[in-house]
Write a protein that binds this DNA or RNA. Structure first.
Lengths: 256, 256
DNA sequence: ACAGCTAATTGGTCAGACCGCAATAACATT
DNA sequence: AATGTTATTGCGGTCTGACCAATTAGCTGT
């Protein structure tokens, strides 16, 4: 069982977060099996050498994460059977994994979108692409337009689950520390707007060509991966190199 | 903008949750635009007629939900640019949307898994399938084994983003009220264990046949959709019927 | 043996206080 | 006058101690 919160920021400043992590640790180590009751808040406060409000905040964090259940007047109980959900919620996912998943998923999403997109939505997508070009002065604006572009395509599928998954993937990208670091590197290296690739996607959508849309989307994201590989190869960070070797092979697998 | 927490439980007993909802409401109504600062905790406590610890707990809930950011010594700020994430987090996604997304995504995931799965992981998958058969007495156990089966395949891709997305989709399914209702209907109608279909997936994985794995997974999920369609057609609920018509067409689109 | 009641335990909330940090305004320096 | 430094002010972060409400278990009386 892997019960950890906010894997990114370890001991992230806030006391209640550290306590929540410690608490999650002792839970995952089996000290309190699923279904059992946690000690009283006062006892926990004494044990972790913090005050009761802090313990309460930590418990609330665990509660919102679905690790424990608070029964008023009775106690705090460990939830059972959600190890899968937990293991994935807090994962610090690397940028290569995210892009590979996007190739698979957004490729299919684009294919579906090409069949269902309306003229109004086409106009919105075109507008997003324009924003990406014109507002290229400030990079963050460009990135925002990029995200908007992809989310519009997801929305064009008329499938809320696909929208949810796409935004989940973008959230993973935006929240991952390691992703942020590598993306910063790419930014410094002067990232091309990749307008042409986006334009190819747009044209495929405009033609309502499902296969072409999937191909264009995969081509686009594949090039982003390539760009990332180049950027990370430039620096000699050891862990990044490991990621490269690990993912280069993966990249070759799914490319053809 | 749609800023609401835990769509399931409205005003769930706890005071801090109600306060968090109220706070989220005034935020979504635009009283505090993204990037701006929230009033001081003491002021908020006065306004909502609760104490400061309660306001703090509510803010922590919003913080964990990604709605606000707490900058120590400065104040609480509304996060910007996550309207997409928020809009999707709270979406009540219908079961058809989820299954369609799973066809697209888990199909690809199975294809990738077939190329990367290890013998140990194969054994785990086989074990999960056995659990699904043997523990068929209690239905929930069977469902748990089903989820485990699919998650194991996701994990076999060695891609954390794919694992995260799959568990996200299962979480959507498990948390959606409308999904729960329809799934209950299916359960009552005496759902077949679908062991044969799972077995076909297993065999494709065993053969390391990527295409066959994708096809088997799609076939399996397509049959689940068919089962859902039959079950929902049996009842005359008006909204369900609309969903049927809406998705039947979609189903036909992606099936071939 | 059982029913009802009491009391201890637990979470829920509150009030007030102190601390350290951050932003800003006032000041001193150049 | 422009700039760098410092003091003030407000903020969140945390702690203490207390009281309330709900649940539970134990006791008592029948």
């Amino acid at each position: 069982m892997n019960v950890s919160l906010d894997a990114g920021k370890l001991s992230g400043g806030r006391l209640y977060q550290r306590v929540a992590e410690q608490l999650a640790s002792v839970i995952s180590e089996g000290e309190y099996p699923p279904g059992s009751r946690l000690p009283a808040e006062r006892k926990l406060a004494e044990r972790f050498e913090v005050s009761r409000p802090t313990i309460r905040e930590a418990i609330i964090a665990l509660e919102l994460a679905g690790v424990v259940e608070v029964r008023g007047g009775s106690g705090v109980y460990i939830c059972d059977g959600e190890s899968d959900r937990l293991a994935s919620t807090n994962l610090d996912v690397g940028p290569f994994d995210i892009l590979e998943a996007r190739i698979l998923f957004e490729g299919e999403a684009a294919s579906l979108a090409a069949q269902k997109i309306t003229d109004e939505e086409m106009a919105e997508v075109r507008q997003a692409l324009d924003d990406m070009v014109t507002e290229n002065e400030g990079e963050p604006i460009c990135e925002k337009a990029d995200e908007h572009f992809h989310m519009l395509i997801a929305r064009a599928t008329k499938n809320d689950a696909i929208v949810s998954v796409c935004s989940h993937l973008w959230a993973l990208r935006n929240s991952s520390p390691v992703s942020a670091r590598i993306l910063e590197k790419v930014r410094q290296a002067g990232s091309k707007p990749r307008i042409e690739e986006h334009h190819a996607i747009l044209e495929a959508l405009e033609a309502r060509d499902a296969k072409a849309a999937r191909a264009a989307m995969r081509e686009h994201l594949t090039r982003v991966i390539q760009q990332l590989l180049d950027a990370t190869e430039a620096e000699a960070v050891e862990e990044a190199r490991r990621a490269i070797m690990h993912n280069r092979q993966r990249f070759n697998l799914i490319n053809p």
